[in-house]
């Protein structure tokens, strides 16, 4: 360090603020605290970092559990919907088959009825 820098260092030595500095500061802090009630998130923000780190695994566990529960619920809903669609399709197919069978029975019936009339006429 050059002599000039040493002079500069001496000139820029630390100085003390006024004697009542701390007192005034704490008065201002009290004033501020009285004016604004502390909210829950502000209380959490004031917690020591160690406490926050200690609570972090618990928060992660809660998030994971609730996430898993929500996912399971969602999966069940999807499976239920799928089963419903399959049931509706099966009913539709069954209904179509029944209609086709009914149509065939009707056709056979209508073919048999004129033959029966001819037979009766022949007998008479």
């Amino acid at each position: 360090m050059t002599p000039f820098e040493q002079e500069l260092k001496r000139a820029l030595a630390r100085q003390q603020p006024s004697a009542d500095f701390t007192e005034r500061l704490f008065a201002r802090i009290e004033e501020e605290q009285a004016a604004a009630p502390v909210r829950w998130w502000q209380r959490i923000a004031q917690w020591p970092a160690q406490t926050i780190w200690a609570l972090a695994p618990v928060c992660v566990l809660i998030l994971l559990t609730s996430g898993t529960m929500l996912y399971t619920q969602h999966r069940r809903a999807v499976q239920g919907e799928h089963a419903k669609q399959q049931l509706l399709l099966a009913l539709r197919i069954t209904s179509n088959k029944l209609q086709a069978t009914q149509r065939q029975v009707n056709e056979v019936e209508s073919e048999r009825q004129p033959n029966q009339k001819d037979n009766i006429r022949r007998l008479l």
Binding site: Q15, P17, F21, T22
Partner: peptide, 11 residues
Amino acid sequence: AVELHKSMVFS
């Protein structure tokens, strides 16, 4: 912290 650093901050 206030007592330790008030002179630094003020200076």
